[in-house]
Design a protein around this nucleic acid. Sequence first.
RNA 1: GCGGGCGUGGUGGAAUGGUAGACACACCGGACUUAAAAUCCGGAGGGAGUAUUCCCGUGCGGGUUCGAGUCCCGCCGCCCGCACCA
Length: 869
Amino acid sequence: MSGERYNPREMEPKWQQVWADAKSFVTSNDDPREPYYVLEMFPYPSGRIHMGHVRNYSMGDVVARYYRAKGRNVLHPMGWDAFGLPAENAAIERKTHPGTWTRQNIEAMKAQLQSMGLSIDWTREIATCEPEYYQHQQSMFIDMMEAGLVTRKQSKVNWDPVDMTVLANEQVIDGRGWRSGALVEQRDLTQWFFKISDMAEELLEGLDGLTEWPEKVRTMQRNWIGKSQGLAFEFGLKGAPAGFDTLPVYTTRADTMRGPTFAAIAADHPLARALGEGNPAIAEFNAQCMRMGTSEAAIEQAEKLGYDTGIKVTHPADPSWELPLFIANFVLMDYGTGAVIGCPAHDQRDLDFARKYDLPVIDVFKPLDSDEPVGDTAFVPLKTQKVRYVQWFGEPGAEITCQEAMDQTLALFEKNGWGKAQAQYRLRDWGVSRQRYWGCPIPVIHCEVCGTIPVPKKNLPVVLPEDVTFDKPGNALDHHPTWKHVNCPQCGASARRETDTMDTFVDSSWYFARFTAPHAETPTEPTVADHWLPVDQYIGGVEHAILHLLYSRYFTRAMKATGHIGIDEPFKGLFTQGMVTHETYKSPKGDWVAPVDVLLETIGEDRKAKHLQSGEPITIGSVEKMSKSKKNVVDPDEIVATYGADTARWFMLSDSPPERDVQWTEAGVEGASRFQQRVWRLVGETIELIQQSADTAREAADQEAQALRKSVHRAVHNVASDIEGLRFNRAVAQIYELTNALVRSAGLVAASPATRIAALEEGVGSLVQLIAPMMPHLAETCWSALGKPGLVADAAWPEVDPALLVDDEITLPIQVNGKRRAEIVVSKGLAAAEVEQRVLSLDEIARILDGKPVKKIVVVPDRIVNVVV
RNA sequence: GCGGGCGUGGUGGAAUGGUAGACACACCGGACUUAAAAUCCGGAGGGAGUAUUCCCGUGCGGGUUCGAGUCCCGCCGCCCGCACCA
């Protein structure tokens, strides 16, 4: 067998079948071993898996298989985030029902995932589009309504006035509807909300406990929640319509209250609307402000526009101080009170606005070392920076930090009754209404007599009708001829079903809990959920750093409040992996060319490309995230067919740090494939050596054997800690090093089999176990060839002998003035004084010192020596 | 625009504030072969030198430190998120 190449196409399906037959990865809730829950973000069933999935699921599988080897009862499930817009788009484009399209996609993708050899418990598979799943979501929605966690209120949507439909943000391109091309308008709709802002403080505080989350994700969530401490006050109004006596405002910069030169309100502020009613010019300006998408990025990047209302606001500290009131397109009604003070000197946006409308600029404070007034760049120092206050409510000329000035101003305003200190959050309530068919129906009935009432739980699920058409734009559920007509469950009068469906973020906010009891008749089995949760290790893309993860944290608390779960935080450990990128290629005509159609040649250091079929020269472009539009995608199916799943998995784990982007290259895959063969050859060679030395004593060992055992145990130790720390690329590097040592050692065994064969045999056995989480099929094949009992998937992680991890001699680098000049070998823990003496007696050091006096010697024990002259 | 991140040889990258470039890919040389592939052995950040060796070097500019890829300040470039894509 030693001469044969390893054939993944033959072995991979074989082992997949063996694992399936043995139910190797089916997890029992009753298993007494310590539980470990590893979860990768479940995929949207787009039809085919992509390399990003391969990377994500390879990482999760390493973790799952590793902890299984460490004796944990591992839960590693998989499901489908199956509701959402693309299914409706497909329905329009291909005339297939969203359900049919989605279920076909799930079948296809499941087969692809299975060909990867993932250690997934498929008996727990769920799809969010099935009533078996979403009925529980409806039932929890009702529980949450009854617990006061849900509300209905007005909120803005993107409205396409031609298609007469609501658009998602991604369907708005440059302010226009993607199909109609019409200018999009903001329109108010009454919608359903989860009151997440009530929980802002708790969600913020909870972040401190998430110590196994990346710091950047916690920072992003903190900023998203956006707690600020500021001043709430009221401007007086002069010349405003009846009923508008004061204008409530909130500012985070109380220290600048001597600096405002204007005030501004949002175009949909009640005052702006009232003004518009009596003034066509204002009405037109307001309408113009509403003619853009609802996305914050679009609003903030739009040109700053204002309209001077002619109304004056009066300052709370001095009613004789009047400022003009503008309506401005960059003021958001959703944040604070929908009104702002404009302090141009210390806010760039306000400064741009002031310059454009020729408003005065008042410097409130200046840098300590300058008296220059603000020009075209606002002076916005850190709150902890000391500045000199020239125009404020405290001591003139005070040199203090902005924070100190804010605190003093807040105290003064509170004392004089001019305003009050207030905490404010940026976080808005979670709007869950979607005017779409392919989502979980909101289980509510609108009755003219009884009002808006939940569907009685005995009538759940509210199932989506199958017979829908997509021949006109808009909500197919709303267009259905009969579905929405029901009798009121309370009074029996004819009533109307809610035709909004839920945001798909709701579906993904509790699936991790459903996996713990996927067939339960209630949303969860609370004791089982609490047994498994929180998820020990959650793995997915950074793009979910805020919304999905914050909503899941909220929903878990809401589930706790309604008795479905006993925990607050769903994910104990979080890991965000980077994207998969690839070079881009362009033809002479400028069209994108797919990698499969490109032939790459390397001549010396030059890389050239030409078209595989036509032979025309191809330009190699930048490395970018794989996307269909740039055609720089590689199909996992083709990779698995050519190289096998293990190679694809190995390559995705090697080289690049998992949190960073990884570049897919043909050369890299081939390298991974060669390594697979190298391991297989090593195993074959080892088996031959074992057979030849069958009669020799196995316990003997010489120095070579001892050195090998050290590398083996060190590798086992390091790979384990690298996997636990999710440093897969370093684990791979350790395995490469061990393999190199084993190959070298195999060559030496022939010279002295009696003393070395045992060490080699042990080392190769350990190597197979180290690669098992990453290349499980190859590992099983080697394991069985080596004659080991059972499956490597069931084998316990190899034990490490701690005595083999310590070195008694250390190579100490010696620096002179921070530059490395020599090194000495010392015994571990040698006293600093002795090290100093030995260093100074070195010829190289004496030569470099050249008689100059030594100022000081820094000795870091067992690490480094620095001689300062 | 706002928030977050990243930047190290030809390439992917390694490096608790302590020998910059581990490990791998690509490349070059050698062995094996009729030959090629595969495999095995060796070389290699850049520059100078036969060589001992020396100088330069972690996007750019400053700073802290005995010592900075790592910490601080200011730039530049790229990427992600911005609440109805998932």
